[in-house]
Structures are given as C-alpha cells and as structure tokens.
Nucleic acid binder design. Structure first.
Lengths: 270, 270
DNA sequence: CGTAGGGTTGACGACGTTCAACACAAGTGG
DNA sequence: CCACTTGTGTTGAACGTCGTCAACCCTACG
C-alpha cells in the first residue's frame, strides 16, 4: 500500500454504513447551533477522521452529521441495499459481515469507538453491518463526505490512510483465516481484543492483561471461520493451560501474554 | 466503504511494492524527454491510476516514474523491509502475500496489468510481493506519490477509490477463506480468473469461456487456504463433472459458466 | 414455572491434510 | 544422445482437525 505520512497508525478499521433503519429507529441528539459544541466535545474527535478538520471549521462537520443511538443487534447496513451513508462509531462496537445465499456468514471486522463504517465504491453495499452492543453513531451521507473530501485535502489524506490501514488489517485476517489453526485463531483474536482495550482504556493499569469481548460466541466463530463449539472448546483449553482466566464470558484476563503471542503466531508447538 | 463517484469500478486490486532488488535487478527503459511519450503511450494508461493525470501534465508523471522488467519468481517487495516504493503493473501478474514465522503463507491477492502494489501505512511493508510471470512494472517512490497526491486531487480521489475497491475484494476473499468449501473456493477462483481475462482481453470472442491461470498450484493453494493436493483433486473433479475442460494447466476452458457460478456460491448441492 | 438465548461438553464422522508414489517436461552434464 | 536432476502436477491411502449432532447448564424474562 501507499504510505500516507502525517497520519500514522491511529486510524479506523473496517467499513460499514447505515440504512433506512437509521432514519426511523434511533434518537437523534443535538441540533442547529449546539451541534458545533457536540462535535468539539466529541469523545472520539481526536482519534478519528474528524481530527483532520480544524476546530475553526468544525461547524461544517457538525452541519453534515447527525448522531444516532442504536440498541444491540440492530442492522446498520443491509447487504445489497443502496449505499448512501457513512458512520463514525462514537461508542460501542459494530460488526461487518458478508454472507452466502445459504446463510453462511463471515464477519470481516469489528468497528469500535473511533473507527468508521460505510465506505462503498459501488451503488450498493457489498457488506452488512450490525450493532454488537449499544452503539452511538455519527451519521453522514456519502454526498456530504464527498464535499468534505473536495474541501479538505487533509480529510481526504486521512481517509486514504485509514482505508489503507484497514486493508492491511484485512490482509492479516486473510492469513489467519487461510493458514492458522483454531487455537492460533482464537489466540490472535484475543490479542486483537487486548489491543482494542488498550486503545479505548489508555489509563487502565490492567490494560496489559484485559481483553474485552462484547460479542457472542456466534460472532467470534463467524469472525474466525470456526464453529461456536470449536471456539468454546478452544477458549476452555486456553483456560486449562493457564494462558487465560476469568469466569466471565465477555471479559477475559490474560495470565501469560508471551504464551498467548507464541500461540497466535504458531511458535508454540503445543 | 465510502462511495467515491467519478471513478467507478475499473480500479486496481491488492497492494504490493518493490525494494532494493529493483534498483539492482531489472532493466530500465526510457529516459528524459522520451519518458513523456512512454507514459502517453502506456498500454494501461487509461485503466490505472495514471488516467487521473491529464495528458498535458503527464510529464510530471513521466518524471516521477521508471519502468522495470522482472523475470518470474522475482521478489518485488520483501515482508518487513522499509516501505519506500509503489508500483503499477503494466504487464504480467504479481502475487502479494503474508507469512507466518514457520513458513506458512497466505497469498492475499494477485495484481494484474493495470493494478498497483506497494501502498503502506507504516514504516515497513507488512506484506511481500513476487512476480508470477515476467512482469513490467512502473516504479515510483512514496515521496513522489505523496507529491502527486498533494498536487492532483483527482489522483488522490482515484487512489482512494482504488483502495476502497481492494478492501471490498479483500472482504469477499475473507468470506471465501472462512466459509467456503474447497470446491466452492476453486470455482470462485476460476470465476475471478475469467473476469480478469475479460478485462485484459476485451475483444477476445472466447473471453466468456477462458480462464488464464498463470500461477502454479502452490500459489493457488496459498491463495485459497488449501493444499496443492486438494487444489489438484478439485480441479480434476470439475473436469470429471464436465464443468471445465482443457488439458493445459494454465489455460482452462469453461464448459458451463452457470454451473461454475452455482458451485462458487454454494447453490449447487453436489 | 416455562421458555428462549447463550454457552459448554461429549461422541462421532467428514473434509481436507499429510505422506507417499508416480508421471511428465525442461534443463544439465557426461 | 541419454542419464540424471529438478520442478510441477496428479493420484491414492491413512490420518487428524474441526464440524455435526446432541445433551445439558445457566441466566434472563414473562
């Protein structure tokens, strides 16, 4: 990929946008003048694409966007529907996926706070997106995004950098899906979740040993190209081997990060 | 992903760049004034990123690039080396891959004529690239690409569109790797090769029934997350079932495109 | 109290891998 | 010119990882 300097590796993840659902469902917050304040005080302003719009121009951004709050399990984007909107995730986690006609599904990524979803090159979305937890989204039409791209070269640059980053993530995930064993897949996934936790909880002293796993076993399985039974068995095995602990399903403690890393990259023969 | 209008779906594929090898190996062609003509007459000019630079400005492009010809099996980019260059593929096919420490390898994509390789967001390349056939590349440093991005908004727009397109391809490949059977994987791969043949041979009357497969079974296996034996067996089975024919390994004739499509998307129970 | 959703565990089997032998073509050197 | 090697591909047999099917536990909820 192309190196896009000035915007190092703090960028978003996989793409995925919203549909009609977001017009009817979801409560909008903010309005008119107060919108500018909403953007300036946004929890993820400094971490996401919006940081490339200066404070003095933030009114433009505020005018172009609307916030929506969605409960867990809500469709944000339906596969194959017309592509019209773009979303920044302010809070919570969104899953992106592609499906086969018979219902088999592959989750291509999770977008956490600070990341975006909804880029599309074609008339329709080639993927679906659904909330994993309660999610706060910032919605923007593609038309508005295009205006921003034209007006603010830094914004275009930042977006290119972010998409390039996502592509690199996708390539690493292909390595996982095509060449890793079930144990290596689960270990890699937990490492990703630790990194994610560190990003969103930079001051938590336990960040080195905590993985936040808000998604269900079904989602993990669809993300790793496994079945729920294999995911469950593998996590149990990691617990038995004292690599991880924690009785709670959605918050896992890491007992040995080095071991987990060795497993993830196939260096552990066991 | 974001829709980037004005640059529909004619864009490149996966990324992958060049390294020091390209300075020592490979013969440069063109020089000084004649470079402009080289760019204007370039076989892929209208299909790739360069089309976003107007003819009148093509001297800039010519000045920024150098052509290199490489024999099959040459490393273009070594995983983990400093990311400094970007390549347009003018002729031939380049494979992009990621590896595990023990040598397991996943090919993340093939870049054919008109596509590019070498985008990177970080200091080093996270992937490797190697020629499949004899390849003619157009090399450009990242610094020069950045200059073009700054000078020509259309170029930036086009690149964003291309990377977005690659991301969509990557997501579809994740579905293949995580959820398809061996037979579905091979059928999907052949469909991609047919599309690729149609793109590069738009006037060939046999384009509906021809798949060009320049890569070896090893490469196909590493692309589909299978072993060479399984690839070989599956292709033999497709031949037995009269879905494809052809005794030659690198040029496959399609006997029934509908059947092949049904298999690729899991609609064929057989 | 009954039901539904999420998760765990066991028994069994299939799909794809591993191991191995073989075929064929191209290149190399005696 | 022919033996030998090397790279690529095919095919068979045995094995093993992971998927399938099923039973069960637990919590939440009406």
């Amino acid at each position: 990929m192309l190196k896009v300097p000035g915007f190092p590796d703090s960028a978003p993840m996989p793409p995925s946008p919203s549909a009609q659902a977001l017009h009817s469902a979801g409560k909008r917050t903010g309005r008119a003048d107060t919108d500018t304040a909403r953007c300036l005080m946004c929890k993820v302003r400094e971490y996401n694409l919006c940081s490339s719009i200066e404070d003095q121009d933030v009114a433009v951004l505020a005018h172009a966007t609307r916030q929506v709050s969605l409960p867990p399990g809500t469709a944000v984007i339906e596969e194959g529907t017309p592509a019209s909107a773009f979303f920044n995730v302010i809070n919570g986690t969104v899953k992106l996926f592609e499906s086969l006609p018979d219902g088999r599904r592959q989750i291509t990524g999770f977008a956490d706070a600070g990341q975006f979803v909804g880029l599309s090159n074609s008339r329709t979305y080639s993927f679906g997106a659904e909330t994993v937890s309660t999610v706060l989204l910032c919605r923007c039409t593609h038309t508005q995004i295009e205006n921003l791209l034209g007006e603010y070269p830094r914004f275009a640059h930042h977006l290119l950098s972010a998409v390039t980053h996502e592509l690199a993530d996708a390539q690493e995930q292909m390595l996982l899906l095509g060449r890793k064993t079930a144990k290596e897949k689960v270990a890699s996934f937990l490492l990703d979740r630790i990194k994610q936790y560190q990003r969103t909880h930079p001051h938590d002293p336990d960040a080195q040993t905590t993985a936040s796993v808000p998604m269900t076993r079904v989602d993990i399985a669809d993300y790793l190209g496994l079945t729920i039974e294999t995911v469950s068995r593998t996590i149990s095995a990691l617990r038995r081997d004292k690599v991880i602990s924690g009785t709670e399903n959605h918050c896992i403690r890491i007992l040995s990060l080095p071991n987990l890393q060795d497993i993830a990259y196939g260096l552990k023969s066991i």
